[in-house]
Nucleic acid binder design. Structure first.
Lengths: 168, 168
DNA sequence: CACTTTATGTCAGCCTTGTTGACATTCCAA
DNA sequence: TTGGAATGTCAACAAGGCTGACATAAAGTG
């Protein structure tokens, strides 16, 4: 274990000296913050009889109208069986519509229905509100740093998906 | 949906104008980053036949040697039955030791054994390494912002637990 | 055209990890 | 002495991961 005293910076290069304690703080920050991050949607989902898996599907279908099942699979990183179970209920409940592809008829393109979009709004309003408050509390510079660290923490494949969304 | 053009700041107060798109980016950053955050420990845990629930228990027992079951419950936010199932296997496997309290004999104080500490080290080494790289990539100012936003995102109870750990 | 590959869906079964409810034990504290 | 707190345990259930196997339709390829 480190003793918490960073050594003096050598040479001309500015390095980050990070004690195990500082890193542990970051790890716990991720853990506790993620709980807060999911708390509001979880409550809403429970009222509707859905879980986080449904939220994830709804979110990314909303983000990319008409996305295919395969694309969703690579974003979510679950098996098709897991995703299919969730999609099946969302389609049966009339929140998601699945249309056979025009060019490639093997593909199914996924869309939120009116009801699906309404739930999406309810969920993302709550989550955005939490995010907005956190941003305001921390300030604009903190927000930039927050995004930078998170992006650096992603696996490359996920970073690709993250950046692939319509920008800004 | 917002068009991404923030309105001019009114009056003398500096506000943060956050479009829905910017907030959505933050939300997805949390989602994708958390996946990266857990990826390395998940691999290690799988090799040992454990899951994330075991990791969480091991982490917080390590952080607070001799903590009680009740304290752990309030940190983890699960039912005692869930936690107990995990603790039982960890104790049976000789990674955690449970000692009856001296003052209050109802309480059990939890400690990592040598083997438990070894697994904790393996897990946290991997997770710290990911965190260290992200920090170095993003830079010191980003790290500060990262921590500020995450702390602001926590539920108050969790923020209390977060801050309660030995500081620095 | 025959064959292979791709995209998707589905069934069955298993595991982890969460839940609720019920009940027992121990023991502190009023 | 009695109520309630702290803990453990049993049973049952659900969500949501997983693997494996199999089916179908459509696209691509030689």
């Amino acid at each position: 274990m480190s003793d918490g005293t960073p050594p003096a910076a050598p040479g001309g290069e500015t390095l980050l000296f990070l004690t195990d304690e500082q890193l542990r703080k970051g790890i716990e920050a991720m853990f506790f913050a993620y709980r807060g991050f999911t708390a509001d949607p979880d409550r809403i989902l429970a009222e509707h009889g859905y879980g986080r898996a449904h939220h994830r599907a709804i979110h990314f279908i909303h983000r990319s109208h008409g996305t295919t099942v395969n694309n969703l699979l690579s974003i979510l990183g679950v098996t098709k069986q897991s995703l299919n179970r969730v999609l099946r209920t969302l389609i049966a409940d009339g929140l998601v519509e699945s249309r056979v592809g025009t060019r490639d008829k093997r593909e199914r393109h996924l869309f939120l229905t009116e009801a699906g979009a309404a739930l999406e709004r309810e969920l993302s309003d709550a989550q955005r509100e939490r995010m907005r408050l956190a941003y305001r509390t921390a300030g604009p510079e903190a927000v930039s740093g927050f995004r930078q660290v998170l992006e650096a923490m992603m696996d490359p494949d996920m970073r690709r998906h993250y950046r692939a969304a319509r920008e800004k």
